[in-house]
Design a protein around this nucleic acid. Structure first.
Lengths: 139, 139
DNA sequence: TAAAGTTATTGCAAATTGCAATAACTATTT
DNA sequence: AAATAGTTATTGCAATTTGCAATAACTTTA
């Protein structure tokens, strides 16, 4: 599994030790913004992550407390991954990335996320967080 | 040089195509937060980037419009790298990462950056941006 | 002119990624 | 009950990237 060797005390360095690869943050995105919660859902994202990388990164996220793992009530061979508080608190990071990217790659910004953010950042962040938490409670 | 194959239209995916590695964002950090602007300064950061990787990433950042490159007025064999607007606008992303990391890795958060941010986010961001722009004007 | 400083390149071993095949397991269908 | 389909995880291997050391090309300093 991808291991973390802390390279420095810097908060940016710390975060890059975890998310400094092409895949890990995409799983967090899928968990928080697209409501995905299973292996097969992560697998079919546009970026086409390979199964071995997905397995590796899910284990890493589990080990480091970003997700918890549960068997689905409907199907024992299906696992559900749920974001922890540690992951949910990455929403503001994801949103600032989205706002930045919207300026330099306007093609891909989803308006339903960007517009509320531009209008009232605090409210948009609060609403997004609430939405994720409601989804978690519903299970 | 590290090339970018766009994997999706998603803003998070777009940003990861650029910054989804262990080094690129550290150079942006050094440029914006620590006022570094030369090869040798980037080289001596805590994370100890290798010269070949540094060369590669500086060329990538140059090609993609995150930095401009100038010969130093005092020394023709020394090059100075200056952040463009595209890079400067990453300050909010860096700051949200810093705030998140401060919660889960409190050891390394530099108080002189975190405290103003917590107190008044908008002002702290404005001040940081102004500081970078003043530094650029001074040359 | 020699020494030191700055940026960049090269070579190579080690690690990681990308891709395909397939295994282990459960659920569904016949 | 047997076959089929669905879900998650593992393995093998080629290709790519990284980490590290040596060194080259150049400019400035002594």
């Amino acid at each position: 599994m991808k291991t973390i060797n802390s390279r420095s005390d810097c908060p940016i360095g710390y975060t890059l030790d975890i998310f400094g690869d092409r895949w890990t943050m995409l799983i967090i995105r899928d968990l928080l913004l697209y409501g995905k919660d299973s292996f097969s859902e992560f697998l079919c994202s546009d970026e086409k992550i390979a199964t071995n990388i997905l397995t590796d990164r899910l284990n890493m996220l589990l080990r480091d407390g970003f997700v918890t793992k549960h068997t689905a009530p409907t199907n024992k061979s299906r696992f559900l991954y749920r974001p922890t508080e540690k992951a949910i608190e990455l929403i503001p990071v994801l949103m600032e990335i989205t706002l930045w990217a919207e300026k330099y790659n306007p093609a891909g910004a989803p308006a339903d996320i960007v517009e509320p953010l531009k209008k009232n950042r605090t409210k948009a962040l609060r609403d997004l967080k609430k939405k994720v938490e409601e989804r978690l409670k519903a299970e």
